[in-house]
Design a protein around this nucleic acid. Structure first.
Length: 256
DNA sequence: ATGTCCCAACTTTTGGGA
């Protein structure tokens, strides 16, 4: 079974690449962030032609999250309690309970948006702490936090900025403490595994990246996982998103 | 050169967000 997460930075602008990527890589489930679409513009029919059911929580110009699946899609839960932005959607697809997350950026440490980001992460933690432990859980998406210095191209250059602050990293740690494993880091303890590169300053060519797109899984999913990898090729070529997809491959037989 | 890309709109240029 293959599950992927991808911040597409506008599904409208990225549709040709998304459709091509889905055909090439055949994910069973794709979690999408930053669709930047209202629900009435979401390409439900186009995904259906590719064999996928879709659940979308849209907002319009900003945010927007989705889960598309070819292995069933039920018990859709759009939105995080108390949040009025389109940043979280959960659904059950086959044997997995999946959460597609788009964590607030934070903007700057002294910006009110940063406080919103920390509160949002606390809300996600609370929702995950209350989950049904019998469900096999995958929490994935754009967390806008680099959990450690290994996840940064130059930690010194980022000092004093969002994405690397101690409160943000602590909030990620508290989410993991609900019983979730940062799978890319678990399987690749010494590789950076960047997932995002700024469009500016030729950042991709210089490999000035961050690992901010995470796949957090419970112990049962971790035990069944055979790979967790970043599709850097998707960050190249014409009109890429600034994020690359992160792919989780698992052996469904080992999910007991 | 706060350097690029994407969106909306009092839309053909500007401002907000990442």
């Amino acid at each position: 079974m293959r599950v992927a997460t991808w911040n597409v930075n506008s599904l409208g602008a990225r549709w040709p690449r998304v459709a091509h990527w889905v055909r090439e890589h055949s994910p069973d489930v794709l979690m999408i962030q930053e669709t930047k679409q209202s629900d009435d513009r979401f390409p439900y029919a186009e995904f259906a032609e590719l064999g996928y059911e879709s659940a979308h929580l849209g907002q319009g110009q900003w945010n927007g999250v989705a889960i598309v699946s070819r292995v069933g899609l039920r018990d859709v839960a759009p939105g995080l309690a108390g949040d009025d932005e389109a940043r979280h959607i959960a659904a059950t697809c086959g044997p997995l309970r999946l959460h597609s997350c788009y964590v607030p950026n934070g903007r700057a440490l002294d910006d009110p948006h940063y406080e919103y980001k920390l509160r949002w992460l606390d809300s996600l933690r609370d929702a995950l702490a209350a989950r049904d432990e019998s469900e096999r859980t995958v929490v994935a998406g754009d967390f806008n936090v680099a959990p450690s210095d290994l996840d940064c191209w130059d930690p010194a250059a980022l000092a004093g900025q969002t994405h690397v602050s101690e409160p943000e990293r602590r909030a990620i740690g508290e989410i993991e403490a609900t019983g979730l494993i940062d799978l890319a880091r678990e399987l690749h303890p010494s590789e950076p595994c960047f997932t995002w590169w700024d469009y500016r300053r030729s950042s991709y060519a210089r490999d000035w990246g961050l690992r901010i797109d995470l796949v957090l899984v419970d112990a049962a999913v971790a035990a069944a996982s055979t790979a967790c990898w970043v599709d850097r090729a998707e960050r190249e070529g014409d009109k890429p998103s600034d994020h690359a997809p992160v792919v989780l491959d698992l052996d469904e037989q080992r999910l007991s």
